[in-house]
Amino acid sequence: MVRLIDLPEYERDHLLEKNMPPLGPLPWHNNAKPLSAKRIALITTAGLHFRGDNAFDFADPTFRPISIDDDANDLIMSHSSANFDRSGFVEDVNLVFPIKRFQELLADKTIGSLADVHYSFMGAGLMPKVYEKSAMQVAGLLKQDQVDAVFLTPV
């Protein structure tokens, strides 16, 4: 469990070192569309990509696209951190990248639609500011895809 109180002191100290101030003025956006009309995209920082894609480097602010037409079961992971569990992802891609769950939400009309393309970053080794250029690029791509909301998953 990631309750700091349950962790050894070295682990607690390490995670607390990752506390950062906000990147700037706090962003806020409202969208009056009901969830059943919203177009959703998934973004993960789990370092996922397909075998033919370039693996993530030690410290790498770039991103990889995951098309809705691709089979998410073919996703693999190249992440620089040795400090999170991989065995759950081995069992089920949806534990980290819940595309099948969102396809089910689409089928039962809980959400309006799913983006054509979803995205994966590798969240390790760099300060948040370094991701700005890639984040802006993905924001533009999401806008082009008419996405209303993004669901974010870390590891």
Binding site: M1, R3, M20, P21, W28, N83, D85, G88, V96, R101
Partner: peptide, 23 residues
Amino acid sequence: ESMQPPRSLWVPFPLGRPLGKPN
């Protein structure tokens, strides 16, 4: 808490398991 993203759900799950339980 420190970075203050707009909307965030804290989950008491191990690192590497953001959705909690496989399968």
